[in-house]
Amino acid sequence: MGEESQAGDGKVVLKRKITLFNGVGIIIGTIIGSGIFISPAGVYLYTGSVAASLIIWLASGLLSTLGALCYAELGTSITRSGGDYAYIYTAFGPLPAFLRLWIALLIIRPTTQAIVALTFGNYVVKPFFPECDPPENAVRLLAAVCLCVLTAINCISVRWTMRIQDVFTTSKLLALVVIIISGLYYICIGNTQNFENAFAGEYSAGNIALAFYSGLFAFGGWNYLNFVTEELQDPYKNLPRAIWIALPLVTIIYVMANLAYFAVVTKMEMMANPAVAAIFGDRLFGNWSWVIPVFVALSTFGGVNGVLFTSARLFATGAQEGHMPAFFSLFHVDKQTPIPSLIFTVPQAPVIVLIDPVACSEGLDVN
């Protein structure tokens, strides 16, 4: 693409600013949200077995990796940004692609942004209210501020957006490494009672399916790099490489984190309270248990950034095909950011955050 921002016909040409490291950060940053701190209870609830839960987490990672590799093939064959939308458009034509785009515009992306931002707000406020639920209005306000600040950064600079993504992805990985090391140390000093009768549990088809649903849900986001293929440096090499690096890494971290949780949190506690990371922190970190809410806040902040970045590119691609007003396909000549698309799509999420009590009350319990 070179360093020119405009082609000979006056059309803005996007610079390929997203490196392999940035690509790995986008995938990991959008997969790891609040799910790994909450979802382990959902997997265990339907199996009742420590060993089966760990196997399901591993299998969920393998299935997600297979799906991501299929997307790597699609992304190197159809090198447009837009992910699902671009592939559906090429394979099935404009009508299915149009429906997919507007479902994402009106439902999927705004609610995803709102839910993750609400989770961020909840965990930022939580250390100040250790004995009770945080004030609802404070959580909503922080969530809206999070969305607005990240939208502004996304409008200003691609590089700054990627730096934020890299920093918070690294932070959440370090946080999970702390949890894993703490759990392994707890095992090494002889606390293995929670692993007795590890295979005892329920193995009906329905329960296994529901357990897989919880596990796969925590891996959601593995396809997000495909939404920005046009801005990825050397996508033919870096897209598959980013997937091969990110998905196995997330799978290993998820399995090891669950192993740490099971070492510390009893089976009854895990079934009674989905906030397994909070129980883990209270038991191992004592007065330092406030670090767990900080870990979750860092994780979700990076997740919001990844969703915003990829969403704007999806809608800009749709506008280029005439499925949205052409105004939303415009990119700033110097900043190389889809400012109209960001300004139009992002305010929906703060509106949901501020006025929808259902999203506020239920959104905090999902990834």
Rank of each mutant, 00 (worst) to 15 (best):
R16C: 14
F21C: 09
G23C: 08
I28E: 08
G29H: 10
T30D: 08
I32W: 04
F37K: 01
A41P: 06
G42W: 00
V43C: 01
Y44W: 10
Y46E: 14
S53F: 02
T65Q: 05
G75C: 12
S77L: 06
Y85L: 13
A86Q: 02
T90K: 15
G93Y: 01
R100E: 11
I107Y: 12
R109I: 04
A114F: 09
Y123F: 13
Y123M: 10
Y123P: 00
V124H: 05
K126L: 10
F129K: 08
P134T: 05
E136R: 15
A138C: 12
R140H: 12
R140C: 11
R140D: 09
C146E: 02
L147M: 10
C148P: 08
K172M: 01
A175P: 03
I180N: 03
I181A: 15
G183F: 02
T192S: 09
N194P: 14
N194W: 11
E202C: 10
F212I: 01
E230A: 13
L232W: 07
D234W: 05
R241H: 15
V255F: 13
V255S: 07
M256V: 09
L259G: 15
F262I: 10
M271V: 10
M271A: 13
A272Y: 02
N273A: 05
R283H: 14
W290E: 04
F295T: 06
T300Q: 09
R313Q: 14
F315Q: 03
A316E: 00
G318N: 12
M324L: 15
S329A: 15
S329I: 06
F331A: 04
F344E: 04
D365R: 08
